[in-house]
Design a protein around this nucleic acid. Structure first.
Lengths: 308, 308
DNA sequence: TGTAATTACGGGATACGTAAAGATG
DNA sequence: CATCTTTACGTATCCCGTAATTACA
């Protein structure tokens, strides 16, 4: 027996004044009404409704029970309404982990707009570059630049990770503009990483791809450092468009060559699978996907786009 | 799905901290717990419990819902407790119809004791001798002196209706004591009814029963009038023991003869059938049955008793 | 690797609707 | 006699338990 349905049925009968009317209101048969009420009375051990075939009246106990039922049903409706509200409106704490450079350049600047749109959200934007465990560190969303989405997690692809070779206009004026990848051997190439004095940059050709050995006098495992060096006119850097896109846009850097190959990575928003996705998480992911997905300032300088 | 059971289950899981523990507490399987919670979440459209196989934690919405559930469950318990109380304690208006003579002699004197025992009852003791319609006149109980209980009503037999021939001591001293029924022809017999100058009184004999034609100079359709006449030493009266029992007890009247035959009537408390008998009605009927049933002051003078 | 949550599957209880009976004004 | 409640009966659904599976520490 469903206790709440019984109460609702009982209330309906009281207000309708008859079993038949209540049955019509609830779109069931009078038979069902009769049986439900009888069952409810049996369970409570009292008669709630004094009924002849012509009249249904509340007993004294029934009247008291009716009042309680009304209050209870109103509480239940409150509870369910509250759930609906919470489901509909993003709110509360949202912990997001992003790579440092991505956070500084894009997520932090985007935060005000997001929070203006969802004022009840408290956003905690944690930046780190080590691989984070989503559940253990209690993150709601982890943004990763990765090749393949981790299994058993939902990974929403936010944007491709394209890379472009670029340099400051002053550097190019002084050292010339490379026209083909081989020209890079003549340039000071600012490379990512450490331990290896020279690196290979890959480029698409008509057939497949082709590696070019590059070298230079500055190396860093920090992309922001490479960007700063490039901005300072030190040399050429191969950097993701999400880092240098704005610099190029503002004319601080200029893209050169074409067909620079990024690894098969993309920017993903990763969150745990859940039958009922939190509206806050949903709102955040939708927001960043909308904002970073079809992003001209990231894409227009990348020749990878056309070949995609 | 039973909404209240779901809430209870949810509360249990929250307090037990795991599905398995909750299942044990409710004596069901973890499978059932899982399915119920999933169903509840589906119905609400939100995730209430964030769970791994090792940990069950409330979500934000779940925590809010949990609080509401607690309040609702407490209200529900209140309501059911109230019902139990009302079911257990006789209270409220009780309308009883009794024959006038029975009401005056016995029910009215018994009322104080009944009301002392059940102080919350308001007793309305209506006395009339015409046949009352129990439901139309909104009586909870109708006391009748009748042969057979009315169908479609519950009739609780309170006491047999025995009758005894009796007279005042002064009359018997003046006119002698009848030893056999035939002696009644020599006496002034005060008979019940009207229109018929003489009546027949019936007596049991060894074999069957035997009618004796009696006559007298006073007749009334009011038993109290016959009693008054007998008390005044006018003659012999055949009256129910519930009327003259106390008079005999006090020596104001003396019983004579044996085997006076009453009709096959008894005193019944009649009330409508109901799956759940009102505790007030039950208490009243039990009270009067207890008080009037094995009543020595009514029975000890009646020889009908022995023959049942 | 062990424990906890979930899923698949089969059986039993429950609750509905249909239809007929009973009651009431 | 018309209408409303109740009961009888057949059926569909739901829900639980058993057992296998998956996930997590």
């Amino acid at each position: 027996m469903d206790s709440l349905s019984s109460m609702e049925l009982f209330i309906t009968v009281v207000e309708a004044g008859s079993f038949t009317a209540a049955a019509a209101a609830l779109d069931i048969t009078p038979s069902a009404v009769s049986k439900q009420i009888t069952k409810l009375e049996d369970r409570l051990g009292v008669q709630l409704l004094a009924r002849t075939t012509r009249r249904v009246a509340l007993t004294e106990v029934g009247a008291a029970y009716y009042e309680r039922c009304q209050r209870i049903m109103s509480e239940v409706n409150d509870a369910e309404g509250m759930v609906s509200n919470l489901r509909a409106t993003p709110r509360g704490l949202l912990r997001v982990s992003v790579p440092v450079i991505l956070g500084q350049l894009h997520f932090a600047p985007a935060a005000p707009e997001f929070l203006r749109e969802y004022p009840e959200v408290h956003l905690e934007l944690v930046m780190n570059d080590h691989s984070v465990n989503l559940v253990e560190e209690k993150f709601d969303v982890v943004v990763r630049i990765d090749e393949a989405p981790e299994s058993s997690m939902i990974a929403r692809r936010l944007a491709p990770n394209r890379r472009v070779v670029c340099a400051a206009p002053g550097y190019l004026e002084a050292h010339g503009i490379p026209r083909v990848p081989e020209d890079l051997k003549e340039h000071n190439c600012l490379t990512y990483g450490a331990h290896y004095p020279h690196k290979e940059w890959y480029f698409r050709t008509g057939a497949g791809r082709r590696a070019v050995q590059v070298a230079g006098n500055f190396q860093s495992n920090n992309a922001a450092a490479l960007r700063a060096a490039a901005l300072g006119g030190l040399g050429l850097a191969l950097l993701p468009t999400f880092i240098v896109g704005n610099d190029i846009r503002q004319g601080l850097l200029r893209p050169v060559l074409t067909g620079a190959v990024s690894s098969d990575t993309a920017i993903y928003a990763v969150y745990p699978p859940s039958r009922h996705l939190s509206p806050t998480v949903r709102a955040f992911v939708e927001f960043v996907a909308r904002r970073f997905g079809p992003n001209p300032s990231w894409d227009e300088f990348s020749q990878g786009k056309a070949t995609k």
